[in-house]
Design a protein around this nucleic acid. Structure first.
Lengths: 129, 129
DNA sequence: CCCGCGGATGGGAACCATTGTCAAATTGAC
DNA sequence: GTCAATTTGACAATGGTTCCCATCCGCGGG
């Protein structure tokens, strides 16, 4: 039924970029990086592959204040992010207490199918100076 | 320097709608509601007034999964939201523990000028049935 | 090694929420 | 009432993202 994705040059290139990056980056930034690397990939394809990876939970996605979607290859398991607004540098943080708190609040008010978003934004030490 | 905003019909109409709504609504929804109420206001003006109110912290704004900005008149003071995906119904929740946790995590990693976003999404009891 | 099917690609058009533009209307101070 | 300054609104423009579709190519079968 559900066919396995094909192993194309473009898919490999996008995955390789994500391996090398350590912070969040937008689809367009990734598209530019690929071009500068000589591994040119169509913008549509970059979007498609990022979305596919995000759907299969292989990478994390979040939206910044400007409404752009940023992507990053993260460790597996549920976690949140402390992200530098300026350079994208990211620290993964776990907050087990928060998870439980959110779920209990939601249950308390009769909400089902609950999800939550939690991101911390700031300026990292390097970028502040 | 900073002049007081004028008391225009349009500004009053937007404020009145926000008084009557109890959940989050998008700029376009508010624009439609105004039209149906007979208090027609230009779309640009709706956007401008909502942004102004949001900037002066008189209303809260958040982005949903589709990237739309939603607005709501909330109680003053820092709080978070439990929002129904289907109908927009909203419960304001306070999480003092979370605030402190986020700030300390950020400080621990040398981040400054820290802010955080935390929203809980779910389907409310009414919409689930 | 060659074929052929169907998923993948890419370039440009289409989308859509939001913001910019600017002439005309309105507000509020005097 | 007058007048300057702010606000409005119709429309154009922006920008990130998705859609479209002819072409390409990975890959299993022969």
């Amino acid at each position: 039924m559900v066919s396995t994705p094909r192993n194309t040059r473009q898919r490999r290139a996008v995955a390789a970029i994500l391996e090398d990056l350590d912070g969040f980056a937008s689809a367009q930034e990734i598209h530019d990086l690929l071009r500068h690397r000589g591994e040119s990939v169509g913008l549509s394809t970059v979007y498609r592959n990022l979305q596919a990876l995000s759907d299969s939970a292989e990478i994390d996605a979040l939206r910044n204040d400007d409404g752009e979607t940023l992507y990053r290859q993260c460790s597996t398991g549920h976690h949140h992010h402390l992200v530098c607004r300026a350079c994208g540098r990211t620290v993964e943080v776990a907050g087990p207490t928060v998870e439980r708190w959110a779920d209990s609040i939601a249950a308390e008010h009769g909400f089902v199918d609950v999800a939550h978003t939690l991101e911390i934004f700031g300026t990292c030490g390097n970028c502040a100076s």
